[in-house]
């Protein structure tokens, strides 16, 4: 599984490694489903080791956000490469997601 979970300051940080694509998205979705089942209130996804995101990856993140919102959970994305950030912009998703430049800032300001 290319996803590692870490507890920091009472929130969960997800480190995803590699590509979020048609092949890896179903597995990544299952990992998030476990957090959602526990009604995890705050989740930060660190993209520093993500090399590529395709449409299915974006759709998976949208579905996770949608499901977290049902119980008031919040999702924050951080450390996006310029290429991946522009992908969020092209698809108009940068306004849907809470995107913060660095993990440290994402955690310390996640009230």
């Amino acid at each position: 599984m290319p996803i590692r979970l870490e507890n920091k300051n009472n929130l969960t940080v997800c480190h995803i490694d590699g590509e979020i694509d048609i092949n890896s998205s179903p597995g990544i979705k299952k990992a998030f489903d476990k957090l959602i089942a526990k009604k995890e209130p705050k989740v930060v996804v660190n993209f520093s080791k993500v090399s590529y995101v395709d449409s299915s990856g974006l759709a998976t993140l949208v579905e996770v956000l949608k499901n977290m919102r049902t119980y008031g959970g919040r999702l924050r994305l951080t450390n996006l490469s310029p290429k991946i950030k522009s992908l969020f912009e092209i698809t108009k998703l940068e306004k849907l997601f809470d995107i913060v430049a660095e993990e440290e800032e994402a955690i310390s300001t996640f009230m």
């Binding site: 979705k29 449409s55 299915s56 759709a59 579905e63 949608k66």
Partner: peptide, 13 residues
């Protein structure tokens, strides 16, 4: 036909 994506994710794509 070609992926294991779940219904909700496919609907978003």
């Amino acid at each position: 036909e070609h992926t294991k994506l779940e219904r909700g994710v496919i609907d978003i794509v």
